[in-house]
Amino acid sequence: MEALPGERELIRKFQSGDASVFVAIMNHYEPYILGLLTRLTGDRTRAEDLCQETFLKALKGLSSFRRDSSLKTWLFRIAHNAATDQIRSQEPGSDSIEEREEGGLQARSSAPSPQARVEEAQMQKAVEEAMASLPQSQREILHLFYWDELSVGEIAGALRMPEGSVKTLLFRGRNALRGRVLNLVPEVVS
């Protein structure tokens, strides 16, 4: 992810009373935040509502943003909390979510695989399918690492967890993703 040019200056301007700079901040981070939320919820409408909520919270909190963390990390943390709260409130019992997702994997794995040769687009499709079947925690870490290009340290800051836990989740997520993609793709290769 590219850094927002002049980010510190934009924050300073915002905190000095120029609310118009918030649009520049939103324009830069919106695709990343919305991408993550779409990945987490699997529903574009819900993701858009959560994205709106994220930026409204950011708008409220940016006045007192202390730069203890980067703006990027801070925004991802707000988005993560918003998504987690909604998932918990709508689907109580995170275990059931995990179980449902595991069940979903079975269904997807037994679905007809693509028949054509291995092309990048097909690999991408396989990755998207495999990502959708991963548990939420792994899906989120992988999305932040690969799609949003956050470092392990930045992910740890955004999700408020130790770097070791991020590495463990990333390791498990990659293994799970590999397993699922390898299940999907050999049929493409053949």
């Binding site: 992810m1 919106e30 695709p31 919305l34 574009r44 991408q124 990755v127």
Partner: peptide, 14 residues
């Protein structure tokens, strides 16, 4: 493919 995800993935907008 994963490392190039930012280039091929959709860039959603509100």
């Amino acid at each position: 493919t994963l490392r190039s995800a930012p280039r091929w993935a959709e860039s959603p907008r509100l």
